[in-house]
Design a protein around this nucleic acid. Structure first.
Lengths: 336, 336
DNA sequence: CAGCGAATTGACAGCGCTGTCATCCGTGTC
DNA sequence: GACACGGATGACAGCGCTGTCAATTCGCTG
């Protein structure tokens, strides 16, 4: 049968309660006792029973990662975040549960409640685009479930964020520095924070360079490869074509490059293209895509880390700022 | 405070044990009592406490989905399977836990043991390529953890499988039917079942059509976009170029189309290309990709379903055969 | 060296369910 | 009509931990 806490206690000649204290890193255990107990645990290869801990301690040791499976940005993005969250949870012996949660639908709150009642997560990690949905945040607070967010729009949450606007500005400045003036922008899905920030950065850079905004150069996309193709066709049909395109993510940038091929435009000679995210694809393309590195996995890890700090009583958690870095590659070149 | 089983019992005027029986769909409860108890549960919005159930019943109601995060085929593939597994688990109020598990490394068994001891999954779902790793299966059996597989190579497991060889044969026959004879094949990662079956189907179709095999037309890939590009360049450098390419998955097929663009080859006029999987990308490409639809999400759901049947004592689970279907689209055309 | 507060440790009940086994009841049998 | 039998129900203990609170020990003060 499995080793129980009681046996560890016997082996270390202490009471079960003391072993419990060591297990939970509680205060008021002498250093010497702590060592002896740890040794006994090790010796017996003791594994606490999660359900028993959960039942007695009224906590589940479960972190739920919530995402919107309706219009998720890109599955690889979520998969990477998930990986990071998992890593952080593992480090503290929490388990991770992933839960899709569509925001549309009036039974949204009911579904959220069911999720909480059925699984009792100690906390949740929110991923774009459900980081800022007010009814969601409100309900979590009402039910007293702590949360941390990846790339929240408001800065009242704890979690992690990159200065996407500054990054977007920087990449557009890179294009400007190469002599481009007719720079187009392909938007992401409306009201996603990512879309807003990247557009804002684009505008900021253009304005700072004194280039008047041309509305025809800002076209709608939806974060997908296909939408990038469509948007690019629209741009290429213009009487005065752009010499460079900044797409709000790599998938769309890839679509733009694809469409360029259709139109016989060589990248980067005839058209510079850049994206955002630095997905694995970006490096595999030829020419490789100039983009902004967004370390999704790392961001997932950090967001979960902040949540866990909170749950484990190690401070209150903060909103960590990630540095960004431009990946200048072959898809952008001096305007000809 | 939360509603407990005891209160449901009181409301229905039965003993707690009877409510428990109803909750677990056990036998020996009169239909009338069952109804009364169900009504009381509904009325009080009763939610059983998973940890208490788990502790008392010696089962966790957790299904772990294992995957190899080392060389996973494509993250979107796994994400879809995960979605399906989750759906099946939800339907029976099981929770799903996702666990990466690298097979390389000599501490593999130790990591598996830790996973089992720490989380006590009632069963696991295995995904390619770890569906047939003998030490894994052996250990699971030793520790008495039931499992179901998605696309296992051997047919001793329960789970779900598509006849990939027949599908590959069918798609190559489609190319042959269009008059192609110099048909190339881009392989997946060695010893993945998917690679073997798809190659076998290719050979079968070619042999049946009496086309002698040309080793130069079968090149190595690795299931990634980049490897497709590389493989295609190799093929295009041949003195006698293929008129069609069957890539072992869509990502590589996309790479082939990309490389075709580089070489000034028009798809499908100069080159027919087809893939395997029917990823979302396949439809977004232009021309859209001819491919085999592999319903990953559905397969994940079915594999989990078989496992749950077993866990819930509803039969022993089987190895379900999925039908395949060709998606003939714009990337393949009659040889010119 | 008595006396006191803080640090350390332990006894015990109980978290919310289910397994085991006893009990009860209605039906069929000869 | 006595008895056996199987279906339906309930009593009770206990799953493996932690919360609460009491007991003990220790170090220090005057």
């Amino acid at each position: 049968m499995r080793v129980r806490l009681e046996e560890v206690a016997r082996a270390a000649s202490v009471s079960p309660k003391t072993v419990s204290r060591v297990l939970n890193d509680e205060a008021n255990v002498s250093e010497e006792t702590r060592k002896r107990v740890r040794a006994a645990m090790e010796e017996l290869d003791y594994r606490p029973h999660p359900s028993a801990r959960s039942l007695a301690g009224n906590r589940s040791f479960v972190v739920a990662m919530l995402y919107d499976n309706n219009d998720n940005p890109a599955s690889t993005y979520l998969a990477e975040i998930q990986d990071g969250v998992l890593e952080a949870c593992d480090a503290h012996r929490y388990s991770m549960m992933v839960r899709p949660l569509r925001m549309r639908g009036d039974d949204f709150i009911r579904r959220l409640d069911a999720l909480i009642s059925d699984h009792h997560p100690d906390g949740v990690v929110l991923t774009p685009p459900i980081t800022d949905y007010a009814p969601l945040l409100k309900r979590l607070r009402e039910r007293n479930v702590p949360y941390a967010s990846v790339s929240p729009q408001s800065d009242t949450s704890i979690g992690v964020r990159m200065d996407e606007q500054a990054a977007a500005r920087a990449i557009v400045e890179h294009l400007l520095g190469l002599g481009h003036r007719r720079i187009a922008h392909v938007l992401g899905i409306a009201d996603h924070g990512a879309s807003r920030w990247r557009l804002a950065g684009y505008r900021e850079a253009m304005a700072a360079a004194g280039v008047p905004e041309d509305p025809a150069l800002v076209v709608q996309g939806a974060f997908t490869f296909g939408s990038g193709v469509t948007a690019a066709r629209e741009l290429f049909a213009l009487k005065q074509r752009p010499t460079a395109v900044f797409a709000a993510n790599d998938d769309m940038a890839t679509g733009v490059m694809w469409a360029a091929g259709e139109y016989g435009l060589k990248v980067p000679q005839d058209l510079s293209v850049c994206g955002f995210d630095d997905t694995p694809l970006a490096r595999q393309l030829w020419p490789a895509l100039t983009t902004v590195q967004q370390p999704s996995r790392e961001m997932g890890r950090i967001a979960a880390q902040q949540l866990l700090n909170l749950l484990r009583g190690r401070g209150t958690g903060e909103l960590v700022q990630m540095p960004f870095s431009l990946q200048i590659r072959g898809s952008t070149a001096r305007v000809s």
